[in-house]
Each structure stands twice: as C-alpha cells, then as structure tokens.
C-alpha cells in the first residue's frame, strides 16, 4: 500500500491528515506500507511525534513493514536532525544549531527517562535562556503532560516525544503523543455516557474534572497548564481520537477531526521571550495552605 502524505503542519489540517493515514492503514496486516513524501511541501518537526505514534501502531500492532520514500531534501534534513527518519534507515544529520529536541520513544514504565531527555536537550546551546520562572513553569507543564499520558493513556507502545525551537519566532514547541485509548474512552468509562471525542476533551479540561476514582485525587493539571499558556501567550493543541482542541491567544477552538486519531497528542508551544513572574496569588502563605 502506498500513502501519499500531504503537507503536515501543527494545526487541525495536520492532525486530520495523520488521522486519515491511521484510518487508511487500519486494515493493513502483515504487509508493506510505503509512505510517500513527494506531495509533502512542508513538515513541521514536532509533528514527527504523532506521525511516529501512528506508524508504530501500523508496524508493531499489525506486523507491517514501513518504508518512507521520496522525502524532499529540506524535509529530509529536518526529519533526520530530529531522528524521525533514522528509525526508517536514513542517516543521522548533526543538529549543529541544537534547536531540535529529537524524537524519543519512552515506555510507560520508563518514565524517569523523560526527565533525562529534558535535562539533556533543554540545555542545548540553541535552546534560549528563558527566565527562571518561565523555565520552571515550562518544565512543570511538560512533566504534567507526560505524567497524564503515563496515568491515563494505556499506551502499550509507549509515548513519543519531540520538540523544536524556532529562534526567529522565539517559540519552542514540545509534543507528546501516545498510541493509547484516547481521552474519549477514558471519559466514557467514567461518565457512563457515549460522549463524542470533542465533548470528552471539553470535559477533561474543566477544572476539577477527573476520571480518577481512587484515593489519589486529580483534575488540577490540565487547568494549571492552560492558565500558564494564557499568561505566556503560548498555544496548546490537543488531538485525541476524533477530537481537536486549540487554545491560542485567549481563544478556544474545538473541532472534529476527519478521521480517528488512534491515541492522544498534546502540543505545547511557548513564547520563550516571556518575562512573567508566574507567582499569581501573593496572599497564599504556607500557614493557610490547608
């Protein structure tokens, strides 16, 4: 089977196209998938994480061989730098400017590796020096996203992470994708309602909503993350099954994807020139915390 991958940007169209790839290859078994990039005009580097999640399912769950062909040279350069293509037999390209956070697959049981990954690549010389407050909130946010995936995704194939810094725009993208059950299924189990993927995302981002039922509470992380993005003037995107959510510049956008994305992706884009202090409530003191 040959699949012609179109241009993939980090937006709804990009996630639509990756979901379409997953849907088209859903029945492919013990065969060969050729992903042809000849119609791909641009590929935004962080989207290598969700593409990798889709392709890993095709290969590992259904025993297919994957080949990636006809990759235009500029795209090949980006995807070799972030090592996505290395998995498919391409030569590694040195990231001289150190602006890429390379693609890494981390098993749920190895969640300590994520800390090592951040420590190693967030200190690259191409990654900007953010204020201490900004750096702290950014790390906190990506650990929140990663731990959410560890707790909720049930992704047997692990979690796929990569990122890219765009110096001209002063923007840093970090994307965490899993090949799990999706937010929809987790929320359906909890609410006992057959709600849509979009409604499941709407429910999940509300403060205090959590699908946890045990002694460890939940329902703080996603709201905390969105509050940070609002102050930072950054962007967050969540794609999960048929649902897509984007928060950008104070505006929320929900839409239905054209096909079923088999898992969940969270893309965080932060404004690295931010100088906010992030200490919101000066009236909170350790004495009145409980």
């Amino acid at each position: 089977m040959i699949h012609y991958l179109p241009t993939i940007r980090s937006n709804k169209d990009g996630f639509d196209h990756l979901a379409e790839l997953a849907a088209e290859t859903n029945e492919l078994f013990n065969s060969r998938l050729e992903v042809d990039f000849s119609r791909c005009g641009f590929f935004e580097a962080n989207m290598a994480a969700p593409l990798s999640a889709v392709l890993t399912r095709v290969a590992a769950d259904r025993f297919n061989k994957i080949e990636i062909v006809n990759v235009p040279s500029p795209i090949q350069n980006i995807l070799c730098k972030n090592r996505f293509l290395v998995t498919y037999g391409y030569e590694r390209v040195s990231d001289v400017n150190q602006t890429a956070l390379p693609l890494k697959r981390i098993q749920l049981s190895d969640d300590g590796l994520f800390a090592a990954y951040l420590s190693r690549y967030m200190n690259g010389k191409g990654i900007p020096r953010m204020t201490q407050a900004m750096d702290k909130r950014f790390r906190q946010s990506v650990f929140e996203i990663f731990q959410n995936s560890v707790i909720h995704s049930e992704s047997l194939l692990g979690i796929f992470v990569c990122g890219q810094f765009y110096p001209q725009l002063q923007r840093l993208d970090l994307t965490v994708a899993d090949a799990g059950i999706g937010i929809r299924n987790t929320v359906r189990r909890y609410l006992r309602q057959r709600i849509s993927s979009v409604d499941a995302i709407k429910w999940a981002i509300e403060a205090r909503n959590t699908t946890k039922t045990g002694p460890q509470p939940g329902g703080v992380g996603l709201k905390f993350l969105i509050d940070f993005i609002e102050l930072n003037k950054g962007k967050i995107q969540i794609a999960s099954r048929f649902g897509f959510f984007e928060y950008n510049n104070g505006a929320q956008k929900f839409s239905k994807l054209t096909a079923d994305f088999p898992g969940t992706v969270v893309n965080l884009e932060v404004n690295t020139s931010d100088t906010s202090t992030y200490c919101l409530s000066s009236e909170i003191s350790p004495e009145n915390i409980f």
């Binding site: 329902g219 703080v220 905390f224 992030y278």
Partner: peptide, 13 residues
C-alpha cells in the same frame, strides 16, 4: 511561592 500556589490548588481540589 509558585509551587505553593500549585499545592493550594491541589489541596482545595
């Protein structure tokens, strides 16, 4: 102080 704010949210929640 930043972590205290998160802790407060966790406690209230």
């Amino acid at each position: 102080p930043e972590d205290l704010e998160l802790l407060k949210r966790v406690v209230d929640n």
